[in-house]
Design a protein around this nucleic acid. Structure first.
Lengths: 350, 350
DNA sequence: TTGAAAGCGCTAACAG
DNA sequence: CTGTTAGCGCTTTCAA
């Protein structure tokens, strides 16, 4: 509260005995200024406590050094992992990140103002309508996360590979029917997971069917349990880990044993999956890497690179824990809970 | 890629046959312009696809309509809850949020640039040193989350109340000794929880001791299990839910029954606590409300309000699930797992 | 290598 | 109610 306004390049210029434009250069391209002069300017600057005003710079250059991270819910662990990777990559490149969480209606309404303030966007919001995405893409460079839209760059996990691994795992355990517990209808992640599972099933001679849609939350999984009961199955692949966890919880509460009576596989590999009982077998998506890759891709476009015609596909792996077991396990195991060796200590890293 | 630069107020002005300043007014204080004129201007504006440039506005007004959310880790569920509340409140007031995650070293180094771009900050970063916080406070208005620093506004949960409830609960279950599993050393949340627990213990005739510190993560809880074994106890209050969950997991893996042999209480009430087995008894902090309150407080200061002399203290409540039980339970219950009624279906809402 | 001067897009007096 | 005229803090020609 010293009362005096923040120092500007003019103050520094006067203090160092040079022109304002020289001060500006000293900060933006030190190479174009004599080293001695740079030294004097830097000295003057920190003597006055000068700091560059990024907004003013943005007005003239047209670049804000900020990118927007548009997500559906910060509090969702799947999102959070990608956010973490994105934030790190952005910071490394000297970019700040504006967070826009569409879970808040006001934030959604305000998207345009955010767009106007950034150089580009990373979008991890499955339920944002395609047309809306394209409208944004017309406004600013953007990269899609966990979504594909023709003509737009994106970063996705290798869902077909993951589903193949999941089905192979189930088939090896003797399962002949797998039920997909669907997530939000009409979203890219749900569509691809469903299709990939069906395809993998036909490759392995495993029959597939689906129930749903359900919200991609614990509550969604809880709700799914009811539906599942009316359509018996020995194996489930859930749209994501949250649904899987909720499902296991609800099934267990109703006295249905996992994995003895039904095997459950999730998608994502978020931390909670390692903690529940039994530990969740899941298709691990490289969340941090996805966020990181999306930001790097965006920044390279901002740097003038071409838009790649194909989305980047990142490898996944199947993490097996205790929630999957042989279909016939219930015939040989006693009624009590079965401790599956090593089912718990593995923690996800993304 | 139409090639032509974005339209400015000058373009709109020409199109509508008025002066640029009138266009400016039409957007910033529509009241000061004749309704008919506003109409013409708005029409011209959207005919040209004009959008206000928030950065340019910021240069002249000195206000950016952005606030910074400084956190220690976006991927931590405790943080995420507060973030969610903060983001919502900010959006409601027409503010965008810049996310600065100190878990990324580069983001930490870049904090100054973020500070220069925002009107104020909300800080939820326990390990950011006090001096650093004060330095930031000298730069911009700020509100602390889950932390108290004399002279600075803050928003905190009612930790003493929560610990009193936790200890009362344990005392009622016959426990006479409780072990605090400490979180990051020297942080405000850890200090207050430790002190409040000790105080509550002395009020209820329950002896307290501590082990730690441990990182506030699942891995921290896993590590704590080892220490705990060498110092037997019948009840534990963990620094937070993550530590508690990790601890329960590790104890169970070693064959120690929770809650039969040891009762465990967490802090926070994050979603995972409801899913693990047994369900986690925990002091529920109003995370969303905390974030919301912090932002409102910040915005009211930006609007000219006085700095409150006392931090806002928000109520907590004890959520009891299956991880706590009577100290003598192990003498009456059989060796197998005990299903505690109602232990699972309650999901946290913050 | 440096300075002078002209903006960037917008807001804010100050007339009228 | 509206137009004119200065800036905001910085970058960027253009000369020197």
């Amino acid at each position: 509260m010293a009362g005096n306004r923040a120092p500007t390049i003019y103050d520094v210029a006067r203090h160092a005995g040079v022109a304002a434009s020289t001060v500006s250069r000293a900060f933006s391209r030190p190479g174009r200024v004599a080293p001695a002069t740079v030294g004097r300017i830097l000295a003057a600057a920190d003597e006055l406590g000068y700091r560059l005003n990024p907004l003013a710079r943005a007005v003239t250059t047209g670049r804000t050094a900020m990118i927007a991270l548009v997500v559906t819910d910060v509090a969702c662990p799947y999102t959070a992992g990608m956010l973490r990777g994105a934030q790190t990559a952005a910071a490394e490149a000297g970019y700040s990140t504006i967070l826009a969480d569409l879970a808040c209606p006001e934030a959604a309404a305000d998207l345009d103002r955010v767009v106007a303030s950034v150089d580009g966007l990373v979008i991890a919001a499955p339920r944002l309508p395609d047309e809306e995405v394209r409208r944004l893409a017309a406004e600013r460079p953007l990269v899609l996360l966990d979504r594909v839209l023709p003509g737009l760059p994106g970063v996705v996990p290798d869902v077909p590979g993951g589903m193949r691994a999941a089905v192979a795992h189930l088939a090896a355990l003797g399962h002949e029917l797998v039920t997909y517990v669907a997530g939000p209808e009409g979203t890219w992640p749900d569509g691809i997971r469903r299709r990939a599972l069906r395809q993998a099933g036909s490759e392995h001679g495993v029959q597939c069917r689906g129930i749903g849609p359900f919200p991609a939350t614990l509550a969604g999984g809880l709700a799914a349990a009811g539906d599942l009961l009316s359509r018996p199955t020995t194996a489930v692949v859930a749209h994501d880990d949250l649904i899987a966890a909720g499902l296991i919880h609800a099934l267990t509460a109703r006295g249905i044993l996992v994995p003895q009576e039904v095997s459950v596989i999730g998608f994502g590999n978020v931390a909670a999956g390692a903690l529940i009982t039994p530990g969740l077998t899941t298709v691990a998506a490289p969340l941090r890497l996805m966020g990181d890759t999306a930001v790097r891709s965006l920044l390279s476009r901002l740097g003038g690179a071409e838009v790649p015609d194909e989305p980047a596909v990142l490898p996944v792996r199947l993490v097996t824990r205790g929630s999957t077991a042989h279909r016939r396990l219930n015939r040989t195991a006693p009624g009590g809970p079965v401790v599956v060796a090593g089912s718990g200590t593995f923690l996800p890293t993304s």
